[in-house]
Design a protein around this nucleic acid. Structure first.
Lengths: 335, 335
DNA sequence: ATTAGCACTCGTATTCATTGAGTGCTAAAC
DNA sequence: GTTTAGCACTCAATGAATACGAGTGCTAAT
């Protein structure tokens, strides 16, 4: 186990490294954090900490930098000390609320806001859990061979999809159909799906194929853990010193561009409510080994809202966590 | 004017520079392009071309690189020699067509396709011209205080927007309203807008404000030259040697991330049908001074479809142009 | 147990000479 | 007159040699 002072030294190293980005030497530590002790004393502690796996040297006779273990300890400490309950929260709410362009708009703004406040990459996602409930379904005839299939779920998520039909259906018959289906508003989507399926088998005869296809498409969009995901401005990454190196930037970027990857990331870790931090190699995705991900999610109405920030391992965790707390709270206020 | 041989030298320099990315010397040229002539002869020609503004030296006594003027000449030559008419075109069509998720899906796939084929950044946009015609409008009641405003335009573009209402309107009254408005299907949106405006002033009394706001929002989305724009995978840029430099990458990236900027770019230059190439500083946006943009657009039904590729100034214009020709043709086939 | 002192390590910055691709010019060749 | 060979010159890039300095580990004194 770590002694009191070892802990103090360790946290100081992490703190200093997060600030400066440069390897931390014993002298700096003695001057800035542990004024009572001399550099030599701290050197000894650091040597021990290195042996235990908390610190490492980029090369012999250089300062120490934290390992993932050290970050882990640091973050856990921060999380424990985090002010529980909502005192000074919100404050950006108004700015979010005044736009009334639905959940998607709010998410877009939230991810942008996260990017701004944290200076890293913000993201916001809504995941439809399996229990998502139908609010309304509608078929809107567009022309002789197309109609628009529109699904609104409880929680305000809207999906639409153009469906082409080999035959002409009148708007009336479509309305008739939607009226029938809408009697199931409030049911879980999975149930509604079953019902539609049997409708198709019975009623539609030769058009069954098209319908089934459309239904499958839609199902893919909704069922399981399909997420709507938005990332805020990536341009900020250019200002983060850790990503000046083109290789790292590239690694992160390639992940961010594949929505699928990112969605998997979220669903993998965001199972629980509250804040989660994934540091460097703790991450399953190798491209993210130099990054940390902070996630915060809350569940209601069969919808999980997840906010997250992706940044370098040496990100300012305190700040990011508090920002996430607040913005999530604001988003919740909207729904 | 340029002599025959000067032109030959100039085009060779551009060609070689596009391939190698390095300054072109007289010896290389003599060996690879103009075998008859010696290096010294070519040196003289190059000195003349430099005086005329077609070539420049990065520093004294180095090889020459093309100026924007030279690229211009080169591109114009390529465009003239371009095989007119559609012989071997298409071929990706099928892959595009088999997905029936509407215009937006096709655009997304097209921009991705362009990225893949060109190895630069592809983009695809649909611009609603002022004469866009309404196909259908619909109001769908979601709960006591919200309804979804849905607008479908001729050409298959769908816009929707959640509107919150201070009062509860029944679905019936909404349907009544939409029925009224839909009598104007086929009218230009600008006219429909006028009509709605007067509706609001007359009929809705105290709710006028909310409605007007929603109408304005929607108008912003539709009117003028609002475009739906998608860019293909940016990750490819990392493989382009010209963008290894983080500064240039950043400049380009910051533009790509702001949809607004890009949309302006398109609308500014894509006025005419056919292919347009904007080289380096010809571009009004300073961030794009090291890039070239190739655009290709076609108009039908009050909708302009524009495909484009953004890459370095020394991009492979021949290839990009032919790829654009083909993909645009495919997209047109879809609508 | 702590600290001061000192020799040692190793990355970084600086300087300086070398190299080589490429030019411009001149004079000879065609 | 045009073309070409020859030569001196320029300048970025490369790499070796050097100095610098931040930081360590160890030992001996407190």
């Amino acid at each position: 186990m770590l002694t009191e002072r070892q802990l103090e030294v360790l946290l100081s190293v992490v703190h200093e490294f997060i600030e400066s980005g440069e390897q931390v030497g014993s002298r700096t530590l003695s001057k800035r954090y542990l004024k009572g002790r001399s550099a030599a004393t701290i050197r000894n502690e650091m040597a021990d900490l290195e042996e235990m796996g908390y610190l490492k040297q980029p090369h012999t006779s250089a300062g120490r930098i934290p390992t993932t273990m050290a970050y882990r300890l640091f973050v856990d400490t921060v999380l424990q000390r985090r002010p529980q309950g909502g005192d000074a929260r919100g404050g950006w709410m108004s700015r979010l609320k005044e736009h009334r362009d639905g959940l998607r708009g709010a998410l877009a703004r939230a991810s942008e806001l996260l990017s701004q406040l944290s200076n890293y990459v913000g993201m916001a996602a809504v995941t439809q859990l399996k229990q998502a409930r139908l609010n309304k379904i509608d078929f809107i005839r567009v022309d002789t061979s197309h109609f628009l299939l529109l699904v609104i779920l409880d929680g305000g998520v809207v999906h639409h999809r153009m469906v082409s039909m080999p035959c002409d259906l009148s708007q009336d018959s479509l309305e008739d159909l939607s009226r029938k289906i809408n009697t199931f508003a409030g049911y879980q989507w999975s149930d509604v799906r079953e019902i539609l399926q049997s409708y198709i088998l019975q009623g539609l005869g030769e058009y069954a194929d098209s319908c089934r296809q459309a239904l499958d498409d839609l199902d893919n969009m909704l069922a399981g853990e399909q997420t709507t995901l938005l990332t805020g401005s990536l341009a900020r990454l250019f200002d983060v010193p850790d990503f000046q190196d083109i290789g790292r930037f590239r690694a992160l970027f390639s992940i961010l561009e594949q929505e699928g990857e990112l969605a998997r990331l979220l669903s993998g870790y965001g199972q629980k409510d509250g804040i989660g931090v994934i540091i460097g190699e703790e991450n399953k995705v190798p491209e993210l080994e130099d990054c940390s991900v902070v996630l915060s999610s809350s569940i209601s109405d069969g919808t999980r809202t997840t906010l997250g920030v992706i940044g370098p391992k040496r990100m300012n965790y305190e700040k990011v966590i508090s920002v996430l707390d607040r913005v999530l709270c604001d988003i919740d206020g909207i729904r």
